[in-house]
Write a protein that binds this DNA or RNA. Structure first.
Lengths: 209, 209
DNA sequence: GTCTATAAGGAGATAGAC
DNA sequence: GTCTATCTCCTTATAGAC
């Protein structure tokens, strides 16, 4: 039995096309953003007509919601797959690294730093909100564990670290470095991780021993 | 002689209205972003009609360009005014604090993390590019000085720190904290500065002595 | 289910009266 | 210079043929 289970060939084709639509949506979202993305863009990228697109997704909001849900599911899958022997800080670093690499390859962060308008739209999407809360719960626990273990600064509210962590996944510095510096993608990732975890300041020399 | 110099009363009124238009533009940009901002929004906020708006600014791009130029000039003015006895790190901290406070009061960062579309539009605006380069040159010098003085991590390319510094001025974590945490604006600012300069990691204990 | 053709409405920009 | 009214284009969404 294949990955589609007991679906008929027709349903399999339908699912495949749906997946292709979501791929195209993610790509267009990444390059133009929500407001400038048109349904014509998506239909054109997939190679179908606009009415066919509307047979799969009932509106632009619905389409974008599904694409973003898939991104969050990807983050949840990645998180579940990380070496369980890593500590919370190590896991957060691995997930951030993954998110940065996805972006450098033209993808989207799992939690786009979208405008108030888009945020509002997504908050009305119950399915999306549910997934976001699931991911958020896991990340919140990791942050708090890292603080308790002394890996993260425990004098700061965990909110501050958690929201800043989200922000680092969509840090615009990534695009600027990719565009204006001569660095490889690997170097960009390493530097972004460094800045996120250690900040701008020079490292204080560690205690001897 | 007043701040308008030798202008006639009519010209003074014209300049005042222009300033009011730019204020409204900045406010609308801050709340809706470029793509969703309409010329009707701006005209309505100022209390004039759309054709009058077009007498002052020949296009939406022009209007937004002028508003952003004024923001950059504000940053340059603030920078010139900072206590000159502060070191480069202190100056950068002061400017970032100022930018964060402006945003918390509903304003815009001086370098908005805009979409590729908006960035492209601004890069075609020679006047804007000139101002950005002026500010960028000053910030670049400050970053490099801070690195030479051992205030910032000298093992990182200055590009990385500079672009990350820009990113912190428009960090979306600010809005999330303002919205979902119980903190005062002062607390938000202090925490954001802390995270930017020190990162997530727990502070390493300093060498004794 | 897929397409061609089109409705409905929004938004940038302007004509022309005052 | 300011306004009312309008043009034009673009975008979401759908009707209706095959």
């Amino acid at each position: 039995m294949g990955i589609f289970g007991k679906l008929s060939f027709k349903d399999q084709a339908f699912k495949l096309r749906e997946s292709a639509i979501l791929d195209a949506t993610t790509a267009v979202l990444g390059s133009k953003g929500y407001d400038l993305m048109t349904m014509d863009d998506v239909a054109g990228a997939v190679g179908i007509s606009k009415p066919s697109l509307y047979k799969h997704f009932k509106s632009k909001e619905d389409l974008v919601g599904e694409a973003l849900i898939r991104l969050i599911d990807g983050a949840l899958d990645y998180l579940a797959q990380i070496d369980p022997t890593l500590g919370p800080k190590g896991k957060l670093a691995a997930l951030l690294e993954w998110a940065l690499r996805v972006r450098l390859e033209g993808g989207l962060p799992f939690l786009p730093s979208t405008s108030a308008h888009v945020r509002e739209m997504l908050m009305r999407n119950l399915k999306y909100v549910t997934r976001v809360l699931k991911l958020n719960g896991q990340l919140e626990k990791l942050v708090q564990s890292a603080q308790k273990l002394g890996e993260f600064d425990a004098s700061m509210p965990s909110d501050v670290i958690l929201f800043s962590y989200y922000a680092r996944t969509c840090d615009p510095a990534v695009e600027y470095l990719q565009r204006f510096s001569k660095m490889s993608n690997d170097q960009v990732v390493q530097h972004m991780l460094r800045v996120a975890f250690d900040g701008f300041n020079a490292p204080t020399p560690a205690l001897p021993g």
